[in-house]
Design a binder for these strands. Structure first.
Length: 696
DNA sequence: AATCCATTATTTTTT
DNA sequence: ATAATGGATT
């Protein structure tokens, strides 16, 4: 190919104009075409047939996708015919928002959702076709771990020989066809079978099922397949590099006939292989859609030349990638800044101080700053410093509001009301608050469930009414009371009373407040704080119920939102004027004027555990580092501590090997001036005190 | 038989 | 620092 860059552009521009012509749209009515470069325009206007868009970091991918959908709508494609699949809920919300702004239309019939949320939609509609009952529960990792423990106990699998996380990961691979239970894992075969059987018994599905079961429906019910294909004639997949084989298969099933499928991705930003993301999908796409149009977006509009060169150099060390070179017109003399703080406290202090001074000297707004970390655990020191320095910040990800024990208790009650066979949730609330149902009673119940192959709820009903019940009359009475509670509130949740109102009454009836007071008698502040969280939770359910955009506000719908993280976190504030603190994974797709990468150390990135488990992970860790670098628009800071507190010990730490892959002329090592002013020290303790004892 | 209390091991990333 | 487990206590 001897065409110069400009010639190539002209050539592609001409092709884009032709596409427009073919749709009967005159270019001058499509003003936004002028805002796109030729490749982008082509990607927007080529709506028929398969398209593969390789979109480098910062190449305007989101613009292309939103413009493309807007363009299709303007060309007369009905909203209901379009299915846009994203990877995270944040991405799908954002896409919805941007398209709404662009078209100025209500988008009630447009489907933009994550693969998992789409799976839930399908299951809600069709799950009875494959022998499941309605009102299924969705089990997250936590629930799955509890279930695995229960199952192991039941079949007397020695718990101390069971690595729960490893086993769960293996089971997930088995279910999605990425591993087999061969002779190495012969002892796990029974456990796996029992585990799956329990899921079905409890009318529960896991995250993998959300992708696998819809495929089963489509395979077993040709009428459903035809119906769904007929509806979604245009399919778009964002973050294609993060799709798993199962997700790919689902997408392929839907688009095989219409062939209008557009996938957008960047292999250099594939950072979810631990969740099944499969690089092979690019090759698979080439095979399944040989007539596809391939478009490469390589012009970067985000970062300075310095940052981009560093990122390019780093990622070039990976061997497994499609050739690609990002370029930008934005030259810069501002170097990447690297520093070596003594420990994580000093690192946090450095970050906080730098942000403060930039906000004065450069008039930088807090929300233009992103602080990236490899693991959630690294956030603590930084959060404490931000609190001390009164820097407003927002953490995305990590321990969310919904994983607090008091909220989980509420959710478990709601889940049991929706699906009484959900043993895992039932076990959680059975004796919370304490109602005298303890170990011995549970033993009897467990015997019954194992013998009769039923859920706990059914076993309880049987034992309460049985004449020759092995239970004491007191235990019987306690169980009976519990069953009646569940039955009453189940009815109430499904009556017109409202979810929030019912939950409020339930919390009141079980006297959860008293329970908190007893559980936390040494610290009544905590009890107050937790009860306040419940109040917030109830209020957020009320908001959900009042929201006119929710077509069908039911308990069931609300619970699936929560399981998919599709919810409005009452903790999350506007985000305006707040420094964004998050993991690199959570930062994908975002950009910030100034980025700090904290903990750029060996064993953190690359993460020791991930490399130890799987040597191939090295390249993925490098991609992760690459993603971190390319989030920055103007200025990038890297910091690597000399020592770090790991658990309770202070261990020495060395810089990440990836730092050495950045050309040294792009980097400036900066000295730390670590004088801590006395009044800041006072503030620090005041802030801490305020944090742990609010209002005191 | 249920609950209380001290000792022990445990931290990757997310739908 | 937190959560789960096992032994002592009511």
């Amino acid at each position: 190919m001897l065409l110069s860059k400009e010639h190539e552009h002209l050539f592609i521009q001409a092709a884009a104009l032709q596409e427009l012509d073919a749709c009967g749209i005159r270019p001058n009515t499509m003003s936004y075409i002028d805002e796109l470069n030729p490749e982008q325009a082509r990607a927007v206007t080529h709506t028929e047939g398969p398209v593969l868009i390789i979109a480098g970091a910062g190449s305007g991918k989101t613009r292309v996708i939103t413009f493309r959908i807007a363009h299709m709508l303007r060309s007369g494609v009905p909203q209901s015919a379009i299915l846009a699949l994203t990877f995270t809920n944040k991405a799908s919300r954002e896409m919805q928002q941007r398209i709404r702004e662009l078209t100025g239309e209500k988008l009630a019939r447009l489907t933009i959702s994550t693969f998992h949320a789409f799976g839930v939609r399908m299951l809600k509609k069709y799950i009875t076709r494959i022998g499941f009952r309605e009102n299924f529960s969705i089990y997250d990792q936590q629930d799955q771990i509890s279930l695995l423990k229960e199952t192991a106990r039941e079949i007397k699998f020695p718990l101390d020989r069971l690595d729960l996380n490893f086993t769960l990961g293996l089971f997930s691979k088995v279910k999605t066809g990425r591993a087999r239970l061969n002779e190495d894992y012969a002892d796990l075969v029974e456990l796996y079978r029992e585990h799956q059987e329990h899921l079905k018994l409890y009318n529960a599905v896991d995250f993998d099922d959300l992708i696998v079961l819809p495929q089963r429906i489509l395979t077993e019910c040709p009428d459903v397949l035809a119906e769904v294909r007929e509806q979604y004639r245009y399919i778009l997949v964002d973050e294609f590099q993060d799709t798993s084989s199962e997700q790919y298969n689902l997408m392929h099933m839907l688009s095989e006939e219409s062939r209008n499928v557009c996938v957008v991705g960047d292999d250099d930003q594939s950072i979810y292989s631990w969740r099944g993301a499969n690089y092979e999908n690019f090759l698979q796409f080439d095979r399944h859609y040989p007539e596809r149009l391939e478009i490469k977006l390589e012009q970067n509009y985000r970062s300075t030349d310095t940052i981009l060169r560093a990122a390019n150099e780093v990622i070039a060390h990976n061997t497994n990638r499609r050739a690609k070179e990002l370029w930008t017109g934005q030259s810069s003399t501002v170097p990447i800044e690297l520093c070596f703080p003594e420990d994580e406290t000093e690192e946090a202090r450095f970050i906080a101080r730098t942000i403060k001074s930039l906000s004065v000297t450069e008039k930088l707004k807090y929300h233009d700053v992103g602080v990236l970390i490899r693991t959630n655990a690294l956030s603590r020191a930084i959060e404490e410093e931000f609190l001390a320095q009164r820097i407003p910040y927002k953490v995305s990800g990590g321990q969310s509001f919904f994983s607090r024990s008091e909220i989980k208790d509420c959710i478990a009650y709601m889940r049991v009301a929706a699906n009484p066979d959900d043993d895992i949730s039932l076990l959680r609330v059975l004796n919370t608050p304490r109602r005298g149902i303890g170990r011995k009673t549970l033993e009897v119940l467990n015997e019954q469930t194992a013998r009769e192959k039923t859920s706990l709820h059914i076993a309880m009903q049987a034992l309460v009414s049985a004449e020759d019940s092995p239970l004491s009359s007191r235990a019987k009475a306690d169980l009976e009371g519990f069953l009646k509670l569940i039955e009453d509130y189940r009815a109430s949740f499904f009556s017109g009373k409202g979810i929030a109102k019912t939950l409020e009454a339930l919390v009141d009836e079980i006297d959860y407040w008293q329970y908190l007071v007893i559980e936390y008698q040494r610290n009544d502040q905590i009890a107050k704080w937790k009860f306040r969280n419940i109040t917030l939770f109830i209020a957020s359910i009320q908001d959900y119920e009042k929201d006119p955009d929710n077509l069908d506000p039911s308990l069931y719908d609300y619970l699936s939102r929560i399981s998919l993280n599709l919810r409005d976190d009452p903790d999350a504030e506007t985000g305006d004027g707040q420094v964004q603190l998050m993991t690199i994974h959570a930062a994908k797709g975002l950009e910030h004027e100034v980025v700090f990468l904290a903990g750029a150390e060996d064993n953190i990135i690359p993460h020791a555990k991930s490399v130890e488990e799987n040597p191939d992970a090295m390249e993925e860790e490098r991609r992760l580092f690459y993603v971190a670098l390319t989030r920055a628009k103007r200025k990038l800071y890297l910091s690597a501590c000399r020592y770090r507190r790991v658990m309770r010990e202070r261990v020495s730490s060395s810089p990440s090997p990836f730092i050495d892959e950045i050309p040294s002329e792009l980097v400036q090592v900066s000295e730390l001036d670590d004088a801590l002013e006395p009044e800041t020290a006072v503030d620090y303790f005041a802030a801490l005190k305020n944090r742990f004892a609010p209002g005191a």
